[in-house]
Design a protein around this nucleic acid. Structure first.
Lengths: 195, 195
DNA sequence: CATCGAATCGGACTACAGTCCGCTTATGTC
DNA sequence: GACATAAGCGGACTGTAGTCCGATTCGATG
């Protein structure tokens, strides 16, 4: 058999995706994530509205695409980076390191993360990355001795307070970033240590 | 001085509020919370659109108004009901009882709670009730020995996974309600016990 | 290079959230 | 009971999310 005609992305499609991502990054940085409509992104990118929606679905998909690289970086560090974030350290230390790493990721661009999580209802859980974080924590909890059903729920409990919306709400209420990191790392340690 | 003209609610305003709440309850129950627009609620209630928005702000406000009674019931039980939910029991037991009570409240009407939490961004934290729950847990954590800044963050961490959106996502992913309750009660115990 | 099938494009279109302001109606006073 | 005042009403209006499908462009093939 010859080459199975791998369905490559068309050249114009790739070009348009870049134009949209560049325009979105510029507009988000300039005016703030909330003040930018997808209409505007499309106009600025010089493409039609339908193109933006077909490719990214909604604003949360667009935000997720912009965050993709940073996110994969963290995933790689977990899968094959040095401990305690990567494999090799005990579960409590890995969970604490994950919490720090994830908070760094969120605080890097909180508005964008919030948008990727909340633009459409349940968006956060549909993202592939969420499953990755959840799976990682559930495995750590399993290693620490929790039964599977409970480990899954506790993994959710560890991830829930890391949502950008929660963090931003606490900052807006006057909390310090250092206190958030401190409290959430302790939270992770307490839960994984399991008393 | 005479009576200071207490700004009472006008009779027609009260009548309209009832009409809107009744129409909303009926439509939400019949078609599901998501499939009902406020336009439709206004039409069904026989009032203008502006009336609905002026009084309830948005769909989350309307949902919150419908939940108000059930919510105050839980608040009363915490403030002056019998232990372990009410005062008198040790912090760990009270936090566990709160978790059970709150989950009962959410599972009573999950779609409505989700709407009250997510219709507008950050809605959950603006509701007065959220502050109440947060304060309650922060006090319990303080009694258990946590310093104030950390107690506030941990109280957030206890509340975050109780969001209807999280619970519904887990149910949709196949989790059982009993496992959620079990895991989240344990979560609360672990955090308040503080190792 | 000409042709063809299919993937992609783009903007008109629908529906909804939320605002605004001239009109109506209730309430308290004489 | 009539009046003055302010609170409340309601629907027209604006801007955005998201859909849809006829027109266009791509890339492979002979």
């Amino acid at each position: 058999m010859g080459p199975p005609h791998p369905p490559r992305e068309r050249a114009d499609a790739a070009r348009n995706r870049r134009k949209v991502l560049d325009a979105a990054a510029a507009l988000f940085a300039e005016r703030g994530v909330d003040a930018v409509s997808l209409d505007l992104v499309a106009a600025e990118a010089g493409v039609g509205k339908g193109t933006v929606f077909r490719r990214f679905g909604d604003k949360s998909g667009l935000a997720a695409a912009l965050l993709d690289e940073r996110e994969q970086q963290l995933q790689r560090a977990i899968l094959c980076g040095p401990p305690p974030l990567g494999p090799g350290a005990p579960p409590v230390a890995r969970a604490a390191a994950f919490t720090r790493g994830y908070l760094d990721y969120v605080f890097d661009n909180p508005e964008l993360v919030r948008m990727s999580e909340t633009a459409s209802p349940g968006a956060r859980f549909r993202i592939g990355a969420f499953r990755f974080w959840h799976q990682h924590l559930a495995v750590l909890l399993g290693e620490a001795g929790e039964p599977a059903a409970r480990a899954s729920v506790l993994a959710h409990a560890l991830l829930a307070p890391l949502a950008a919306e929660h963090l931003l709400a606490q900052l807006a209420a006057g909390a310090q970033r250092a206190d958030l990191v401190d409290g959430l790392v302790r939270h992770a340690e307490l839960v994984v240590a399991g008393c």
